[in-house]
């Protein structure tokens, strides 16, 4: 029983980690309608920045988010402005896919050039302190991630619902042409959204870095799971992504414990494929050709 509880809680903690990495991805996915294959590399960049700020300047990792999130916001805006925006009107998906795949490849190898293949360890600064609650143990940093991921989802949700800019973002996602007719500068909304999405992983980086060793490939590790989460939760749905992250976290944790840690990924990706194939509704709403079905 105790083991079960421990596995359960570990799963939830893992879920919170996936959630905080996925939130930005689902935002970009749902609104700009671009699959950002470089999302994991934004996280990786963020983690290296956290590493640099903590080791070189001695800032507490959590505090670095104040600098790292804005920096990634700028990186996101620049990516949208200079890479995605010129390709928005491209008819073929492959153009956009390759653009972000190329960016991802470039960033991974840039990190390899700058930092080498060795692992960079960000000081834990107390975040790896174990906390015992009844029969289960968690790390302080994991609780922080859980708290922040919940606040992030609630905060973003409120922003999208209650502010004029937030509503404009949703309007653009639902009907780009109509949004233009309302006087919304669609390109600016896309840049803003991409920036926010990237800033989210900047925030995530400051919490992930103290717990996980940073390496050039760390992004790939996280982003594949983040894609699973986003698809599971439904495109662009923040609460969906959060729920999806929790489900994947639990599956990962239980599969790792009861089936074997070396095949837990098979379970996670197997589920991903099942969802993609069996529950396609809502998955390609923006690309489905409806031109021959006029009501």
């Amino acid at each position: 029983m105790e083991t079960f509880l421990q596995v359960l809680v570990s799963g939830l903690m893992l879920g919170a980690l996936f959630a905080i990495v996925s939130v930005g991805l689902t935002l970009i996915f749902g609104i700009v309608k671009v699959v950002n294959f470089a999302h994991g590399e934004f996280l990786m960049l963020g983690m290296y920045l956290v590493y640099l700020f903590t080791t070189k300047l001695g800032i507490h990792p959590l505090l670095t988010s104040v600098i790292v999130a804005p920096l990634l916001f700028v990186a996101g805006v620049a990516t949208q402005r200079f890479i995605i925006q010129p390709l928005m009107s491209a008819r073929d998906d492959h153009i956009q896919i390759f653009a972000t795949v190329g960016l991802s490849t470039a960033l991974i190898n840039l990190a390899l050039l700058l930092f080498g293949a060795d692992i960079a360890n960000t000081p834990a600064s107390g975040l790896r302190t174990p906390i015992t609650i009844g029969p289960v143990r968690v790390l302080l940093g994991q609780l922080v991630i859980l708290a922040v991921s919940i606040m992030l989802v609630i905060g973003l949700q409120a922003f999208l619902k209650r502010t004029q800019t937030g509503r404009a973002i949703r309007a653009v996602a639902q009907n780009r042409a109509a949004a233009q007719l309302m006087g919304i500068n669609v390109n600016r909304i896309y840049m803003l959204t991409f920036g926010i999405g990237a800033a989210c992983v900047g925030l995530a980086a400051s919490m992930v870095a103290p717990l996980y060793p940073t390496s050039p490939n760390i992004g790939t590790y996280f982003v594949l799971t983040a894609f699973v989460v986003v698809v599971l939760g439904g495109l662009g749905s923040l609460t969906g992504a959060f729920a999806g992250a929790m489900i994947i976290g639990l599956i990962d944790s239980f599969a790792g414990f009861y089936i074997g840690s070396d095949v837990r990924e098979v379970v996670v990706f197997g589920m991903f494929l099942l969802i993609l194939i069996l529950k396609p509704s809502g998955l390609f709403s923006n690309r489905l050709s409806l031109s021959h079905v006029s009501p």
Binding site: Q164, R170, A171, A178, L181
Partner: peptide, 27 residues
Amino acid sequence: ITLIPEGRQLFADMTVEENLLMGAYRK
């Protein structure tokens, strides 16, 4: 200059009120 487009083009998943508020987006 405002165009009411062919086929309505409402923001289908937003409420009617939110749609109207989007109409007033102009400065």
